[in-house]
Structures are given as C-alpha cells and as structure tokens.
Simulated scan of single mutants.
Amino acid sequence: MRKIYVVGIGAGDPDHLTLQAAKAIGRTDVFFLLDKGETKASLVELRERLIKGYSQPRKRIVEGRDPDRDRTPADYTGTVADWRHRRSLVLEELIAAHLKDGETGSILVWGDPSLFDSTIAILEEILERGETVFEFEVIPGISSVSALAAKHRIGLNRVGQPFQVTTGRRLAEGWPEGVDDVVVMLDAQHAFTGHPEADIYWGAYVGTSDELLASGRVGDVADEIVERRTAAREEHGWIMDTYLLRRRPTR
C-alpha cells in the first residue's frame, strides 16, 4: 500500500517544524509540490529548505502546476469547489505516476492542515474516485493563528468565553453572534475597519523575515494596517495575514 503524509510545516519559521513532522519528512520517498507561480516562489522555497534539511538522500521531488482560480467570484462556494476538483486531478496524476507501491509520499502544508487548507478534502476526493489507492496520515503543524497569538503574547480566548475563526467575507456581514473574540483570515476587503471600537492584533507573513505586526484600537491603527497590507501585497505579489478582533468589556 502506498502512503501519503499531509505534513503541517508551520506558519513560516523553519523552527516551527515539529519532531513528528521532521520524522515524517525523513521517511518520505516522494515529495509533491504544487507550484503557485513566481509571485509565490517563497512558499515553495521554504518547503524545499525543509526537504533538504530533513529528508533522505534518495528522495524525489515532483512538481505540478496549481490551477488558477477567480479571487473575486460571484459564486464563491462553487468557485472554490471547482478549484479543489481541478487541484485533485493534478495531484492524482502526480501520485499515480510517481508514487510506487510500498513507497511513502508527503505533501508539505503551510501552517496546519486542519485550518483553511484543502489538502485533506482533495485526498478524500481522489480516494472516492477509486482509481488511485493509498492511505494517508495527517501531521499537525503550528498555524498562523497560534503563531500570531504567540507574537502578540496574548490568549485567543478569555476566561470562560469562546472565540470564533471566520473570514473577512463573513465579518463584513456582521459581527458573529455569541462571541466577543473573533479570529479573521482572508480579509481582502479590510472588514475590521467596520469595528473601530474593538481591539485588533494583526500580523502578516508571521514567522518569516517579512513579518509585519500591529495592534491597538481599530480606530487608531486601521489606516496603518491597510497601508502596510496594501504595500506588502504589491511588493510580494501575495499576502498571508490574519488577526484577532476583540471587543472591549462593557461597564
């Protein structure tokens, strides 16, 4: 039986790699990389650095082209489902062609595979088609959310209180009910600016040499965050950021 590890490699700092992840990389025969293009070359470079540092000499690296998708679709859910399907076809072709019986493959996932990543769902879709057979194991990693909290030296929740992880798209529809602490990812429209009295703990490229951090009352730091975020995206061609939005206690 062929086996595939889905390995969480952390938010960007090579030291985020866990011992479990390092051991999985060391047992891997074939690494599968999906190239996202020149503007996101740094995402591939970190993976290659970790492979070089922890893998066995006889390992192989195979690459496929990550399909493009519309970033501002009218049908967001349908567009993402179509993109995942096309990704599954690319990955299935790579697995079928390059992973031999009895070998182990690995897919190195930014952050943690369980949070805002499609790799697990894509592998399940491949298995459901029944044409390419393998087993897979998920290795957890340090997420951008946990790295953000560590950088700001804060907890994500307050005593006895829940928090919610959501997207900028959903936050723009209104503050989630029943929570005062909201972790937001994928906020291209700067939805946090609609909550000037809340506190924000923001970070971009957390754990990398390009790391950006800001915190304070939204009304005081929103312009700074928007300016820094816009400039960083123009410089790098992409941005990976997240933030905690926290309501202040009422008296």
Rank of each mutant, 00 (worst) to 15 (best):
D181L: 14
T166H: 06
G37P: 12
A96N: 14
S144R: 02
K3H: 04
L108W: 01
V30I: 10
I95F: 10
T193I: 10
I239E: 11
R158H: 13
A11H: 05
G102K: 08
R49A: 11
G8V: 10
H236F: 15
I51Q: 01
F163D: 05
Y5V: 01
D68E: 13
V80G: 00
R71K: 07
E177G: 13
D199F: 06
I154P: 00
F116Y: 15
E38F: 05
Q161C: 10
V221M: 06
D35W: 12
G168D: 00
E177K: 15
T77F: 07
V145C: 01
A22R: 10
R246N: 15
V90Q: 08
V182H: 01
Y201R: 01
D112W: 08
W110M: 12
I4W: 01
V226P: 00
S143E: 05
R86M: 06
V6G: 00
V184I: 08
S118R: 03
G178V: 14
A121E: 12
E197F: 04
L156V: 13
P176F: 13
Q56V: 09
D75S: 08
D13I: 06
D66L: 15
P14I: 10
A11N: 04
Q20T: 03
S118Y: 02
I126N: 05
P249R: 15
P249S: 15
L244I: 15
D223R: 10
A41W: 09
P176C: 14
G141Q: 02
L33S: 11
A222Y: 00
D68T: 12
V218W: 01
G8N: 05
S144Y: 00
I200T: 07
T230V: 11
R84G: 01
F163L: 14
L99Y: 07
R58S: 06
L99T: 11
H98Y: 14
E234T: 07
R58G: 05
A74Q: 09
S42P: 02
A172E: 01
E224A: 08
Y54E: 10
G111C: 09
D112F: 07
H152C: 08
E128T: 13
T28N: 07
E93W: 05
L244E: 04
G10R: 06
R217P: 03
K100P: 10
R247T: 15
K59T: 09
D35M: 14
M240F: 14
T167N: 02
A74N: 09
A232H: 06
L43M: 15
N157L: 06
L91H: 04
I61L: 15
E93K: 12
T208E: 06
D82W: 05
E48N: 10
E128L: 14
I154F: 04
I4E: 00
A172P: 02
D199I: 09
G12S: 11
G219K: 06
F32S: 13
T18W: 03
D35H: 14
W202L: 02
W175N: 02
T230S: 10
A121V: 13
E211T: 07
V109L: 12
P14H: 11
